[in-house]
């Protein structure tokens, strides 16, 4: 098993994660419920239905958002 770590950005902050994980795994590792967030990877929307299939890659830049109060 590959034990290397990947260097990524999540919501503007640097982070290291184990290689071989999916975006859904990443969300769970961050304590987030993947069904309640939307994910943008390198400026492209990742459809929620594919979060468990798309692998996190070194250098990826993620924006993970949800709904908050607003006018």
């Amino acid at each position: 098993m590959d034990t290397k770590t990947l260097s990524i950005q999540v919501n503007g902050a640097h982070r290291r994660v184990p290689s071989g994980i999916s975006i859904a795994d990443l969300a769970l590792e961050l304590g987030l419920e993947p069904t309640r967030v939307a994910v943008e990877r390198n400026l492209e929307i990742v459809p929620r239905s594919t979060l468990a299939e798309v692998q996190v890659e070194d250098g990826d830049d993620y924006e993970i958002v949800t709904f908050v109060g607003g006018g």
Partner: peptide, 24 residues
């Protein structure tokens, strides 16, 4: 209701969410 779209709170992911109080 109008809602805003913002980055999730990664430093404290356990915080309550709007959707817990106003059911979409």
């Amino acid at each position: 209701v109008t809602v805003a779209v913002r980055r999730v709170n990664i430093s404290d992911p356990g915080q309550p969410l709007l959707t817990d109080f106003i059911d979409p």
